[in-house]
Design a protein around this nucleic acid. Sequence first.
DNA 1: CAGAGCCTAAACCGATCGGTTTCCAAACGC
DNA 2: GCGTTTGGAAACCGATCGGTTTAGGCTCTG
Lengths: 196, 196
Amino acid sequence: MTTQATPRERLLDAAGELFYRDGVNIGVDALCKAAGVSKKSMYQLFRSKDELIAESLASVGPSYQRALEPDLGEASTPRERILVVFEKQDRLTAQGEFFGCPFVSTAFELKNPEHPGSVVARHFKQRLTDFFLGELVAAGVDDPELMAVQLTMAFDGASARAVVRAQALGGLGIKMAEALLDAAGVRAPELASQAR
Amino acid sequence: MTTQATPRERLLDAAGELFYRDGVNIGVDALCKAAGVSKKSMYQLFRSKDELIAESLASVGPSYQRALEPDLGEASTPRERILVVFEKQDRLTAQGEFFGCPFVSTAFELKNPEHPGSVVARHFKQRLTDFFLGELVAAGVDDPELMAVQLTMAFDGASARAVVRAQALGGLGIKMAEALLDAAGVRAPELASQAR
DNA sequence: CAGAGCCTAAACCGATCGGTTTCCAAACGC
DNA sequence: GCGTTTGGAAACCGATCGGTTTAGGCTCTG
């Protein structure tokens, strides 16, 4: 049965996928049809389509974060843990149907920064920056806040390139992150030991 | 009179602005009304709305390039000429009503990479990369192609940040470009001479 | 001055937009 | 078993979508 999850879950799942794949301008009818939920149910679960946009974005947020950040014990050093994000992004761009970071994509589409979906997007982008910040502080970087922002911009710039060119990054994002980390003195362990 | 320019010019101008400000999903009626052109005229000047999207993007392309690249004699060294692009971007994000690079924005909205508008977007993004490439070759950088791509990604990442946070960059893009240029050995003249 | 072209305004087309309402069947607690 | 709640199917609302057509005004050229 399709009807294992609650209508709310089915709606959030379908919305998370369709808003990302087809854009936030997809119709409510198509959305409800894909979710197997009536419009009546949708409108008593969510005040408006705009609220559904925001809530579905908030619901895919954590899983998107998890898909990017390193698993426990996957990487040990801050540099490695930061680069894992760019490696996983690289893999995402390679497996087709990539439309960019869902938060950036939604923010671009909505235009209005006060739209509830834009607020959610802003929040989750900050969480990625915060992840970088934690690692950079652990690495003892000079200006960790600035560096965390730069890594976030590198991440989104790489994502934008994959979208505009409609092709995989092929390591370009990783290389850019490495260049920034090198410049900030967050050296690879082997290189650091070689440097002595 | 509003009717100084030809209907085609008025349409391209209005489309360039409204597609950017309100997104490509703005209606044809609103567009024609803003341009002071009848739908009939529009549809005998352009085969479809999609074609108008592409042509209007192509028509704003050169002026957007000009707004970013340094004027003749504005900057002398390759490093300065590259940084001018980021300085002008910084200023663009500060003057309100900034919705990101129009090419990236349109590509994100269209989703379909084969849409004529996406093709135009790809073309103009490549031209920015080519500008960087020319300067980097002049600067004698090791891997100018890679560096040019990284600067383009830095540019688009900075633009994405300004959109998502809905605020000016405040020099963050410039600093990132400087970090990348420093790492690539494209030093500022003063620093280079001080280093001797 | 007559006729041809170009243009806008506006009606029109079927489809779809976001949102509401009605109807009815299945699932629920008692 | 009975009443209530839940939720899906579908009609319905006015507005708008992309696109076409009609009607008529304006300006050129001859």
